[in-house]
């Protein structure tokens, strides 16, 4: 899959992925963060971070609370993090967010964490496809399917 095959937002399948990408890990992140788009009919909103460690637990929770079905964070590999320990810190925050989501039965598996190979120009495309594929398997967030008293 290449960036060219990423579609503009259409009907979609009702699944939403909010993705965060370290600005240093993919040159394509800047282009893709301009507007929402679709991959495999999953609507994706991508935001660049100056470093993956800028991710906060709250970013993940709020995304799911306000309608996302999944959240992805793409970091640099540990040995090429420009800020040394950025991706390690990011992983710890993602782990905490997953723990909270497990506690409340939304499911920690809806949060994807992956490092992008800096030598692979298609790394972001592959990660996008993997995340959207996993999200299609998981289906809609339980927050969207629950009835309210």
């Amino acid at each position: 899959m290449s960036v060219n095959k990423i579609a503009p937002v259409g009907q979609g399948n009702g699944l939403h992925l909010v993705a965060f990408c370290c600005a240093n890990s993919s040159a394509k992140a800047a282009e893709l963060s301009k507007a929402p788009f679709e991959v495999d009919r999953v609507r994706v909103r991508l935001a660049q971070l100056a470093c993956s460690s800028k991710i906060e637990v709250l970013h993940v929770l709020r995304a799911l609370e306000t309608g996302a079905d999944g959240v992805a964070l793409w970091t640099c590999p540990q040995d090429s993090c420009r800020f040394g320990r950025g991706c390690i810190r990011a992983a710890k925050r993602i782990e905490r967010a997953r723990r909270i989501l497990e506690q409340i039965a939304v499911g920690g598996q809806r949060v994807f964490l992956q490092s992008l190979d800096p030598n692979d120009p298609d790394a972001l495309d592959k990660a996008l496809r993997e995340a959207t594929g996993r999200l299609v398997e998981l289906g809609k967030s339980p927050l969207k399917t629950v009835g309210v008293k």
């Binding site: 039965a105 339980p142 927050l143 008293k149």
Partner: peptide, 15 residues
């Protein structure tokens, strides 16, 4: 963080 988690947890309880 707590407020966001509670909103989701309560929604899943049908509240």
């Amino acid at each position: 963080i707590t407020a966001s988690a509670l909103r989701m947890a309560l929604r899943l309880r049908g509240c």
